[in-house]
Nucleic acid binder design. Structure first.
Lengths: 109, 109
DNA sequence: ATTATAAGACACCGTTTGGTGTCGTGTCAA
DNA sequence: TTGACACGACACCAAACGGTGTCTTATAAT
């Protein structure tokens, strides 16, 4: 089922702000060609292309050639790993909240 | 309230596997001194200490000197940012494409 | 008092990262 | 058919990263 062809750690892929912005842009449209994505950044086409390659290696992006342009599409599902990971720790801050409210209640007495 | 003294991007801090393992170790115990953490890894003390510094810069870890040892404690709350971020994209895999396009149309308003 | 332990501070080093510029090629338009 | 455009594939570079080793100091143990 879920292909584990990830050459690149998803945590690593989303670490860079530029790549997170790329993910966001691709979330807002179906399919965007490289030159159009590049227009959203100050850096050159080569740099953006490299970032997209990294996202592709993490399975977060799929590309497809149409005429002379390469169009990119988002595949969010690898982000599940992030969600699972962070979900485990969510109890640690909700627990703190619980303890805090308990402490506050105790001090009320 | 929540101090925004983060010198370091949380996404960056959790990108490294060693640092994620440190977070895990600290989640399983209240407080662990550096030398004890170091014993869990193959790398030297200096390297582990550097990773802990990065976690500290991201607000994910708090340290405290007790005698000659430095003990570390987890502060999971900055991970909320990760959870919020990934929660936005969860709709992209939890829905089929038809409903996704509906959602996107709704969000246009 | 002496010795062993814990850790900070620092210099150092190879590799990776994130950017650049350029060249060559396929594709669309005039 | 000529030119502009989109892109891949390099080569290149400075800075950051992830590790090392060494020196020093504070603390604990014998």
């Amino acid at each position: 089922m879920s292909e584990n062809n990830q050459l690149r750690d998803v945590f690593d892929a989303i670490a860079d702000p530029t790549r997170r912005r790329l993910i966001r842009l691709l979330a807002e449209a179906e399919e965007i060609p490289l030159h159009e994505l590049t227009a959203q950044f100050q850096m050159g086409r080569t740099a953006v292309s490299k970032h997209l390659t990294i996202l592709k290696e993490a399975g977060l992006v799929v590309d497809r050639k149409v005429g002379r342009e390469t169009r990119f599409r988002l595949n969010a599902s690898p982000l599940r790993e992030i969600q699972d990971w962070v979900a485990f720790y969510s109890k640690f801050w909700s627990m703190n909240m619980l303890r805090l409210s308990q402490l506050l209640e105790e001090e009320e007495d």
